[in-house]
Design a protein around this nucleic acid. Structure first.
Lengths: 103, 103
DNA sequence: GTAATACATAGACATTTGTCAATATGTTTT
DNA sequence: AAAACATATTGACAAATGTCTATGTATTAC
């Protein structure tokens, strides 16, 4: 996963409505109309949000007749968590002592 | 951690320059001037980025003479990872069967 | 076949964001 | 005291973003 891909995932999750959508999908597959019921946005706005979430890989969709079912892509979240865990871990072996202003 | 706080953290990480800064801080405390050397941005832009990272809680700063040393706040990352892990975990017990369009 | 439902697309608009140049503030060095 | 260095603040601007209305496209129901 490149830094750009990580940034795109973060950008997708930087909106509270999209976070709510992700939270709703935690309990399992949902169709657009059900997500729409819970959010205070219009249908085109929801459609836009689902495209953002799909494009970055966090969510996958499955068409079934006139319904679109959305699901969390656990592999994507797993890779993302892996990155966050890596950058946030204190790794003493990686520690550099060469800061220009260290005494 | 509220949904707004999570969204702010995501927004802070949604920029590739700020991700690079976080990556640089992984190896330990860094001062602004050293971060500036590695990035292709002006000093005011770096100052802005550090403010964004500090305001959301991901980074803390320590003033030492004319230098400002920045550090990753592991507690904040830990809370964030906890949220991501929670929403991305498949929890069969939480699964709802009541989708309007489920057959 | 007509109406209703679920979703996407296009265009508009106000707000936010990343960036810079200019300038200010505080600290160290000479 | 003056110069150099590290950082913050202000104001400007182009680009990106979230939202809406209007409209289009499938699919199902009557």
């Amino acid at each position: 996963m490149t830094r750009e891909e990580i940034a795109n995932i973060c950008k997708a999750m930087s909106d509270t409505n999209r976070l709510r959508i992700i939270e709703m999908l935690t309990s399992g597959e949902k169709c657009g109309c059900e997500l729409l019921d819970e959010l205070q946005v219009t249908q085109p706005t929801l459609s836009h949000h689902m495209k953002v979430l799909s494009d970055c890989g966090l969510v996958s969709s499955r068409k079934d007749g006139k319904w679109h079912h959305y699901t969390i892509r656990h592999e994507c979240f797993a890779e993302y968590i892996e990155y966050i865990a890596a950058v946030s871990s204190h790794n003493e072996q990686n520690r550099e002592m060469s800061c220009c202003c260290s005494k």
